[in-house]
């Protein structure tokens, strides 16, 4: 627990007496440049998306060159993860989880491609290319049209089919077993 939540008046007293009590003066200030270089995560509302843009058409060419060998010509998978299809299967006996059927946010797609793909050359794509790849995968899933262009304004507005498919907080413990000792069924 945070000390500040336990006894606020007491903490105020300590802070007044010794303002630097919690600090060791270890580490050095991060420069804005340093933060900017590493601060690449993208939030669902689009915060963190860089300038740039990419169309479905650009994405098709880029995908064929950099992604298709692992994810299939149309994102059908094999040898690696399937990226397309599966909508409507989540509640069936054979659920198929893909970007199109399962991912709640289009921004996550941009974030993940930028940090981790292509698998054999991660972090090698520029912002325009990542927008284009995202646009194409969304198009293959029928989520955006073939004329779509993705950028910092349009991508966060894409509504993913499974946007409301997640439950939190954690409902566990959801199974209540008994500690039976003798002649247990």
């Amino acid at each position: 627990m945070r000390a500040s939540r336990i006894a606020a008046p007491l903490l105020a007293l300590i802070l007044a007496a010794a303002p630097a009590a919690a600090r060791f003066d270890i580490g050095r200030p991060a420069t804005p440049d340093e933060v900017a270089g590493w601060n690449t995560d993208v939030l669902p509302d689009g915060r963190g998306l860089p300038p740039g843009r990419g169309s479905v058409k650009d994405g098709a060419a880029l995908y064929a060159q950099h992604c298709a060998a692992c994810h299939g010509a149309k994102g059908e998978g094999k040898p690696m993860d399937r990226l397309v299809g599966g909508q409507g299967t989540l509640a069936t006996a054979t659920p198929v989880r893909t970007v199109g059927s399962f991912w709640p946010y289009a921004t996550t797609l941009f974030d993940y491609i930028r940090r981790a793909m292509p698998f054999d050359a991660p972090k090698s794509l520029g912002a325009d290319q990542v927008y284009a790849a995202s646009a194409y995968i969304l198009y293959l899933n029928g989520i955006v049209g073939e004329d779509a262009v993705m950028d910092a304004a349009t991508l966060p507005k894409v509504r993913m089919p499974n946007r409301d498919g997640f439950i939190s907080p954690d409902p566990r413990p959801d199974v209540h077993a008994k500690r039976c000792e003798k002649d247990c069924g």
Binding site: L90, T108, D111, A116, G165
Partner: peptide, 30 residues
């Protein structure tokens, strides 16, 4: 302020229920 919704806490590490909804942010190992 809020969770970052990374690939590893949406596409993966979420627990799909028979209803078709998936539990998210299920951290504890029981």
């Amino acid at each position: 302020r809020e969770p970052f919704e990374t690939r590893e806490e949406t596409s993966k590490y979420t627990d799909l229920m028979p209803s078709g909804k998936a539990r998210q942010f299920t951290f504890l190992m029981e």
